[in-house]
Amino acid sequence: MAFTRNPQVFSAAVSETVIGAGDKAVKLGGEHVFPFYTFDAPIDNPPAVGIDFSDKGPDRELPGIAAFFEGAETLGQVAKRASEAEGASFVSLTLRSADPNGDDEPVEESVAKAKEVADAIDVPLVIQGTGNADKDAALLPKVAEALEGKNVLLMSATEDNYKGIAVSAVLAYGQKISAESAVDINLAKQLNVVISQQGVKAGSTVQHVGVAAAGYGFEYVASAMERIRGAALSQNDDMLQVPIVTPIANEVWSVKESVVSEEDFPEWGPVEERGINMEISTAVACLASGSNAVILRHPESIRTVSKLISDLM
């Protein structure tokens, strides 16, 4: 008796969200199958990879990153260079200086930086806020206003600040937002529900359902994503059919493996190599669990991960 294939093609699908405008807009989601299960049915929109840098500029202490951005001095030049990274289909700017626990830069200055980056590139733009609910509630709507027409993705609205961000960013200025919850299918669904109750339609949001570096409780991330994808596809739960976008860079480049110096841990080898491997491993694990896009920092991890995606498509 020959082998019988039983493809798992679901009648439900992940919803589709488009970021950016023009030729280089990126479509996220839309698939009817589990991640990379192209043997079950074709996946129209391959997962996307974005390149992240902060408004303080790229981390030039790492030789590979310094080399990649060599000669790019202003934020606009950095953004332009980033947009040309092999394998990156969108750019992400983290507004680190706005953090109230850090520089607490005034909103207007952060908005001006976002504008400088947006004007320098023709690929979609993601703006990552500070993670502070109050500051992001003040900051992200202003960014949305300044970048009207660019169809940017603002990360992220949380249960503490979704109302203002959803209403102003999406309804008033037509941008996309990410709903951020903490590695739990019920929290993710709850936030998607309350955001939709603000009048935000499917296709205007993505979800960031939590992230951890490989080895740092990643099992929660994997299971949260797999359960969310499972419910979206097999139970046709439209409040979970939102594409998942996972910012990985800030997480993986702050764990011990990517930070401690080679002088302190000689057997571990060069710190940059460790960080790259950490970033690749975490990104691939997120994609295999259900992320429709990952946001990375190092050009080499971006190249590797996007190459793997195309090999799997």
Binding site: F36, A213, A214, G215, Y216, F218, A222, E257, E267, W268, G269, P270, E273, R274, I276, N277, M278, I280, S281, T282, V284, A285, A288, S289, L308
Partner: peptide
């Protein structure tokens, strides 16, 4: 190696391994 750790390899054969690969892979 990360992909197949999640999706169903019982054994993954590598060409080489140093700490830079081992730390994420074994942690994952």
């Amino acid at each position: 190696a990360s992909l197949f750790t999640l999706k169903y390899a019982s054994i993954v054969v590598l060409n080489e391994i140093g700490y830079e690969q081992a730390l994420p892979l074994f942690g994952l």
